[in-house]
């Protein structure tokens, strides 16, 4: 079981050169749970994620791990606790799957020390979890998008961190692979107790797979909590500006957002919506 950590954002404001994107966010990442940061495009989800993982220095406030600001921790020490899969990672040409996953072992290796049995074990385990063991000695260039994404997650797993951040891990994937990846991540969370924090685009998949949701609007945290509490028609309307109905997903009982739109709306729904809006 993974160690429990307290990862906390205090009054974080962050952004780029002269544009602040995140305007003062306070949050605590729930340990051993899957959290999803949700929001419309350009609301600061990715920026917040980058600030929490030290890719971006906050303009104001701080991100702390167990009480210590993350930029005061040794880089390698932090990298053994907190891992990140960026949105568009870069594949060096010709590298094999096992080698790429092996690079995740970097924070566990000393300056002069070589590769150890421990490293091989961690890589094998990570590849087994992500179901990419058969691909071990194949070059990444030959893999499909879904396979690649699993390999990347395996690399982050080989890092053996207690907390794992993922920036839109399912974007550009077919729905089949999206579900596959999220299932694998849930396995990981349930078997090892890894704390998972991700940015996801799809509200319904977020609602289904998240234990906890942070809803962001224009760089501010406007709601957080259980998906069934956060994903309501009111909050969806506030975040995305979309009229919708929220029902229970027949498979999981998680909230399911059904957008209304202007066309193809049944008559009785029309009446009801006009009544409710009155």
């Amino acid at each position: 079981m993974k160690t429990t950590h307290l990862l906390e954002a205090e009054q974080i404001k962050s952004g780029y050169e002269n544009k602040t994107v995140v305007h003062g966010v306070d949050l605590i990442i729930p340990s051993h749970k899957i959290s999803v940061i949700m929001g419309a495009n350009a609301c600061g989800k990715s920026t917040l994620l980058k600030t929490l993982t030290r890719l971006l220095k906050p303009l104001y406030g701080k991100a702390t791990l167990d009480g210590t600001p993350i930029d005061q921790l040794q880089p390698k020490q932090l990298a053994r606790i907190l891992g990140l899969l960026p949105q568009s990672p870069i594949v060096p040409e010709g590298i094999t799957v096992a080698d790429l996953v092996g690079r995740g072992r970097f924070p566990h290796q000393s300056l002069l020390g070589g590769w150890t049995k421990e490293d091989t074990k961690a890589v094998a385990e990570a590849m087994d979890i992500m179901n990419v063991t058969e691909l071990a000695n194949r070059p990444i260039d030959e893999l499909s998008g879904g396979q690649r994404q699993r390999v990347w997650i395996a690399m982050a797993l080989a890092q053996q961190t207690d907390i794992l951040f993922l920036d839109e891990p399912t974007t550009f994937l077919d729905i089949t692979y999206q579900v596959e990846i999220l299932d694998l991540l849930t396995d990981l969370n349930q078997q090892y107790g890894t704390t998972i924090v991700m940015v996801l685009h799809d509200i319904n998949l977020s609602a289904r797979y998240a234990d906890y949701i942070f809803a962001l609007k224009q760089g501010k945290l406007i709601a957080e909590g259980d998906p069934s509490d956060v994903i309501t028609s009111g909050i969806v309307k506030e975040i995305f500006g979309l009229d919708c109905t929220v029902i229970k997903d027949p498979i999981s009982d998680a909230p399911l957002v059904i957008p209304k739109g202007r066309h193809h709306v049944k008559n009785e729904m029309r009446i009801r919506s006009s009544i409710s809006s009155e």
Binding site: R54, P75, L82, P86, R103, F106
Partner: peptide, 19 residues
Amino acid sequence: KQLSILELGEQSAISLGVN
């Protein structure tokens, strides 16, 4: 060794603990 991690891109490198 750091260089081979740097090859994975700036973001991956930072999150793997490379300065």
